[in-house]
Design a binder for these strands. Structure first.
Lengths: 118, 118, 118, 118
DNA sequence: GTGGTCTAGACCACG
DNA sequence: GTGGTCTAGACCACC
């Protein structure tokens, strides 16, 4: 975890979990690490992990079996993809376009930069 | 000012001032509104405006003449552009590219979306 | 804190913190007092301490771990020294020399005064 | 006048007047510029000049002949010298010495710097 | 009139 | 618990 990042730690943990699920390290309908285990693994406060799990529970990525721990939801991969694409196309991209317009940056300049990275 | 924005008010005030300068409403080397005037204009507390002015003073966008108020720096327009472009190319754009890669979104899809907006 | 000093309190707090770091009371990479703790210790308002911490954060003397507090930067001692020497040689000393010239005071007289103090 | 200086403008004006007197541009017992004349000469607000004159009147460097203007006191040169030396030896120099001690700067280093300037 | 500093107290997101 | 932001209101030096 990057404690000096502008992104809150509980969101960074969510990102971590999403990666675990998307790469099938954590499979659908399987149990995931307990809050204590993940907290100790990532060297993060328990409350912060709890908050991340609550967030994912709300988004129906994981669910709780009382007394047994958290499990990955059946359609978690699909849901994560949907969530991330929605965030990208409704938030990230519009902000990028808005900034481009404001600064007079053309789409061609963006394409060029993109190709340089590859 | 948008009080429900996640962006702090003092940064929104900075954005406002940047627009004033970039559109030449506030010209270089000219005096700008006093903290009290701008505070009453934008319906914002004095201290909040002061914070914004301090920020811009640090960035050498404006400077202080003792007892007379704040003035726009000589190269303010250039500096603002530099600041904003730096933020875009070093922060906004890399995040966008990173998200694209993560989600398997091609540059062509971005171009298409971009053209739809025009 | 000396409230009748011409030096603003928030700068006096900075001086206090610099001393703590230079004397290794506060060690590099260690957590320092929270704004509330230091405020209550020095009998100063929270916001004033925050101002001091912001100043030091800008100067890269301390850094923030989200939700955990401020920590001393790795090269804080070196940076503080650099800052203070810069201030001395670029501000204090030239003013002294200028005054000497203006008043026709020789370097020998300064040396004599200096030796008297020892 | 330097409006971005840390030294208040009214003190800068005082310095200007002191120089005029010390160089005999303004002679003892002679009339000096009116507040209006000096204000327009130095491009400074009237009130600021008035404050400078009040300051110098208090220090018995100049005196007022009602309806006729301000005049240089008889022993102005001597008084200015005394004032400036007092300020130097009781304020400037002790601060310099204190900073030297704090930063571990030896008197030899000061001497060296001094000789470099000549 | 100008900004600079400080206090007191509030609410917030985050850990 | 941590800091971040904001408000309201005060007093100050300075122009």
């Amino acid at each position: 975890m990057d404690f000096n990042n502008n992104k809150p730690i509980y969101r960074q943990i969510v990102d971590y979990c999403f990666r675990q699920i998307l790469t099938n390290e954590w499979q659908e309908e399987e149990r995931i690490l307990s809050v204590r285990e993940l907290g100790s693994l990532l060297q993060v406060n328990l409350n912060t992990v709890i908050r991340s799990y609550e967030y994912m529970e709300n988004e129906k990525i994981i669910f709780l079996k009382r007394g047994m721990g958290y499990y990955v939801e059946k359609n978690a991969v699909k849901r994560i993809n949907k969530l991330q694409r929605k965030d990208f196309f409704e938030t990230v991209l519009p902000e990028t376009f808005k900034a481009m317009q404001l600064l007079g940056i053309s789409i061609d300049e963006i394409i060029e930069r993109y190709n340089q990275l590859k």
